[in-house]
Design a binder for these strands. Sequence first.
DNA 1: TAACTATGGTACAGATCGGTAACATTAGTC
DNA 2: GACTAATGTTACCGATCTGTACCATAGTTA
Lengths: 214, 214
Amino acid sequence: METAIAATRKPRERIIEAACDLFRKHGIRGVGVDAIAEAADTNKMTLYRHFGSKDDLVVAWLREVEQAGETAWNELLAAHPNDPMARIQDWVGKAAECAVGDGRGCDMANTAIELTEEGHPARRLIQEFKIRHRERLVQLCRDAGIVEADLLADALYLLVEGARVTRQSVGVQGPCAHFTTVAQAVIRAFAQNNKMGAAAPSLKKAPEKQTVRA
Amino acid sequence: METAIAATRKPRERIIEAACDLFRKHGIRGVGVDAIAEAADTNKMTLYRHFGSKDDLVVAWLREVEQAGETAWNELLAAHPNDPMARIQDWVGKAAECAVGDGRGCDMANTAIELTEEGHPARRLIQEFKIRHRERLVQLCRDAGIVEADLLADALYLLVEGARVTRQSVGVQGPCAHFTTVAQAVIRAFAQNNKMGAAAPSLKKAPEKQTVRA
DNA sequence: TAACTATGGTACAGATCGGTAACATTAGTC
DNA sequence: GACTAATGTTACCGATCTGTACCATAGTTA
């Protein structure tokens, strides 16, 4: 009766796959291990023999998400050899697809929001993943000759992250519908600022004043 | 033994206040009604006499958040009469404070991510709140004479939304540390584009191509 | 004083959750 | 076929959760 997932693969794979689907759809606290085992066409005991706890399964799931991100990134680089600007444009397109997508945003960000516990093992993984993503974005902008590469990278990072969360709160209509246009405008602004001299004082005028509210 | 919240106010107020604190800190599914009642220095029965269910309490909490947002917005407008550009700048500053803040981002967005159920009563409230926020941002940009006010508004919207979620996944260090700089650069770009003619074709060149991924 | 209302306190129902024990069954391997 | 490792099945434990029943108490008003 292998309804949900073909039984040709081993249970561990099927469990991971079911977890990917269900955790993404309903969040972590929104789905129980019983439901995951059933969707994987197996049972709770086998699940617990492969993953010591639900938290372990969450981490394994996020590692899967992480690896999918690595693959996608490498494909992006390979698709445009020696053309960094095309890479950025392609990244914007891919990011737009993600932002619209199935309406559930970024698994990593969503998990960070849901698991508020300070020392949860997933949090370190999420943070490292996001930091790596940001660094790669900076490298992309640097390769494209953008002077303030870190600023453009952070701008693009914040825009896509905002779009993916906005998709969940207001829907496809709304600000995230303008993500591509806005992103390209920002890229153009930074590239244009590039031609006006390396100093580019106009962008860094205001020092960060981070007043933490009470 | 009124430890948590002064018992001078009526139970309903104390319950709302406790819910504001706990829902924000641990999310909705992360805190039970017992804990809320205890933090409000009352008991579960009184809680259920004022709020028919936990979902009702969630909605009441979000209405409180909503009202706080309205108040903050009106204060922002009143602080800079007839000076729309100062309003935008002030908004950026306030948004930066929110983005850093206590590290738990936007209650509305967080709730939209946590409550995946399609017809949940909180979802409509969240959506309407966010749409209203966006419209006000558009009006702000329009008042400032920005030609493509809707685009700048969406850019700022996405940036702050991204910053508030990024604060939770990578921390204060990282992209959200550059929020203010990026936001001001974007504002400058749009304002500069303003001077170059009302048509401003350079920003709207690419039509939205929203490929939904499989 | 009598009646009414809001609240507190306790116990509990019913369900779900994460996790485990014990045993039966299958698949693979020599 | 015999042995072994992996998996399936069932039942259960203890904890937690939302929500309720029941009654006692305090405050207010007529």
